[in-house]
Design a protein around this nucleic acid. Structure first.
Length: 271
DNA sequence: CAACGGACCTGCCTGC
DNA sequence: TGCAGGCAGGTCCGTT
């Protein structure tokens, strides 16, 4: 589920429920996530007040005076706010329990997610330090992409999915943005003009903002069971639509598989 | 340094 | 119905 718009939707969804609350307990039922959940988490977090709920790329940050919990949802992670006593389902790996008897519960079947603890500035953490600009911020421009791509031969789709280039653009939105910008996903990153990169930067922002708007609708039923319906699927122009007609030219969309990742594109509209 | 493949996992879908 | 195989929204790491 979690691409950047969903991570931001999650942040907005949980913030009112956890901000200024005191943690009284951390229950770790399964510590084997992407990295083991560190002992510091159940040791240091209880007694702390959540003073900030932030996002950097696809990482969620729960700030306290003593340190910061760093949460990444991986491919299959999600969090919910629940009564602290409610029975955990399968794959409910961690609860952060608050003094009002609610808890933030992490659910992650594939366990590609991560929950870490740092007592220093989380933005300096090895996982966050190298992240490129926020895609929705001012720093993501055509000039930035053009400069970062200089001399690089990798496919532009891999290039914009590199978190050092721009933080948090996953496979779905990379495909969508390239379609909107009319750029072929396999084109060498270093062989794209600054003007076209300006179109791409704008397309990334447009598609993320649109998805974020849709995410707003899932917020309402945030407590409802899973919320994992395909709410933005209707908006997707290329992702998952191989063989179906291009929304612009009606020719069938193509599928390219590079490594494990699929690229969906229109060979007529994208060059 | 750049580029690629493998690794980490479970669940779901398809086809035999 | 069962089972094997392929696929999935991420991203780090080791090897070329």
């Amino acid at each position: 589920m979690p691409e950047l718009p969903e991570v931001e939707t999650t942040r907005r969804g949980i913030a009112p429920h956890v901000l200024h609350k005191k943690v009284i307990e951390v229950r770790v039922r399964e510590a084997r996530l992407r990295w083991p959940v560190p002992d510091e988490l159940p040791r240091r977090l209880p007694g702390q007040i959540i003073e900030g709920v932030e996002r950097r790329g696809k990482y969620l940050l729960l700030r306290t005076r003593a340190g910061c919990a760093i949460l990444h949802l991986g491919m299959s992670g999600s969090v919910r706010i629940l009564p602290a006593h409610s029975a955990p389902r399968k794959h409910d790996h961690v609860d952060i329990v608050f003094d009002d008897r609610t808890c933030l519960r992490l659910h992650d079947p594939r366990r590609f997610g991560a929950l870490l603890w740092t007592h220093t500035d989380p933005l300096h953490h090895p996982l966050l330090r190298q992240l490129g600009p926020e895609p929705l911020g001012r720093a993501l421009t055509g000039a930035h992409l053009h400069r970062a791509a200089r001399g690089r031969t990798l496919a532009v789709k891999n290039f914009i999915m590199d978190s050092r280039v721009v933080a948090g653009v996953g496979n779905i939105y990379a495909n969508e943005a390239l379609f909107l910008a009319g750029i072929h996903p396999a084109r060498a990153a270093g062989r794209i003009t600054e003007a076209r990169y300006a179109l791409l930067a704008a397309a990334v922002k447009r598609v993320l903002r649109a998805a974020l708007k849709q995410g707003g609708t899932t917020l309402r039923d945030y407590y409802a069971s899973d919320g994992s319906t395909g709410y933005f699927q209707q908006c997707l122009k290329v992702y998952g639509r191989a063989g179906q007609p291009c929304t612009a030219c009606k020719r069938p969309l193509k599928l390219l598989r590079h490594g494990q990742r699929s690229s969906f594109y229109c060979s007529h509209c994208q060059r």
